[in-house]
Design a protein around this nucleic acid. Sequence first.
DNA 1: TAGGCATTGGC
DNA 2: CCAATGCCT
Length: 474
Amino acid sequence: MTPSPTPTALVWFRDDLRLRDHPALQAALKAGLAPVPVYIHAPHEEGAWAPGAASDAWRHRSLAALDAELRQRGSRLHVFAGESLATLASVAASTGAAAVFWNRRHEPAIDQRDTRIRRELRQLGLRAEAFNGSLLFEPWQLETRAGDPFRVFTPFWKAALQAWNPPGLQPAPDHLPTMDPVPGEVALAALGLQPVPRWDNTFWDEWIPGEQGAALALQAFIDSKLHTYSEGRDRPDRALTSRLSPHLHFGEIAPWRVATQLDAAGPPDERAAFLRQLGWREFAHHVLRHFPHTPDDNFNPRFDDFQWAQPDAALLRAWQRGNTGVPIVDAGMRELWTTGWMHNRVRMIVASFLTKNLRIHWRHGARWFHDTLVDADLANNALGWQWVAGTGVDAAPYFRVFNPVLQARKFDPQGEYIARWVPELRGLPARARHAPREAGAAGLAATQGYPHPIVDLGESRNDALAAFARLKGR
DNA sequence: TAGGCATTGGC
DNA sequence: CCAATGCCT
């Protein structure tokens, strides 16, 4: 008789593409089960918010990086495509698995699917358990004194800091057991995550997807950006943000590792300013979990009657491609198109321009960001767009319309960010780049090929305010 | 350059 | 009663 092999546990990787600080992987090891790393490509199970093309391009590289890390330890990633439940059940059967472990995702469609999968797996006699792998605080962990979910960031974050208790850090396992090929496996390349043609080539000068890339980004941030973060983070002309967003979205680094490594570095108020940004990510997941309709519909139903402009494909396309004639807006949209990322200050500016000056529904902007950002994240995207549009949580006491010229002067004072992304304006003196049409004849002559503004900023602002005022009586 | 805009959640 | 990533006069 041959000795029976160690029973296995499937570790179902999703948006947690790392080996350190991985609760589901640790659970398998702790239970004495041999981990079988599994990835299942099933975008059709994500409802209306299947990952976009930029996100897929990142995911391809991140999965390849995870596979390489696993192979260094004797294991590898087993890749499948199809129905998640059926795949898990069949892989569990063919590998003799006793359990399936994964880390939670909180997107509404995924959460529903996973609840069903857990139930079904348990009915098959398997242990099935989900863990927190992506947040400092589970969305249900914090509540107001009245027992409600938070709707305002500041009290949310105060409560979070009071409850602060991040878990300890876990190294990646040194060695993982080798597994025979599993029936039904496919090659990573067969998932079709990489774009054709390869328009993403320009992305990878700036990004290293995967756990190592995430660690490098964090270290670079701590070494050279953290000490000026509170001011620097608002300056798109300087590279002073952490650029951790895609790494966090794909779970290439745990937020509690970011927080813990930060603890040992930098001035306290700079550290607090950065942690606060991690806090917005936590808040977004909290809000999405408690208000699952917010990716698609207004958080505040009062705005359901807001008079958005008539759909105009040409205006939307001008915005998407960075041809609005408003320099800071075009710079941001072109940065997004070229690199799969946009500086957060500029995200607010382009979003305000779309929803207030063009008065195009925030949903169109959210969709474009979802498709083009490498860090596209349903929770962050929904919160951000609704915050700017004024339809969401953390509402301002007035109808806020960003002035893109003032914002550019304030946060890109020399017009360097504009010049980087809008070459038509490079010949202008620095101060003229923010509003070339106001720069006189000399300015005009230098702006070859750069469009006139597609909308009058002052007029459209007043129109938006008027549309807002019309909501009042209702 | 200080004050107006004028809402809402949470303590 | 405080606070909320802004703009305009």
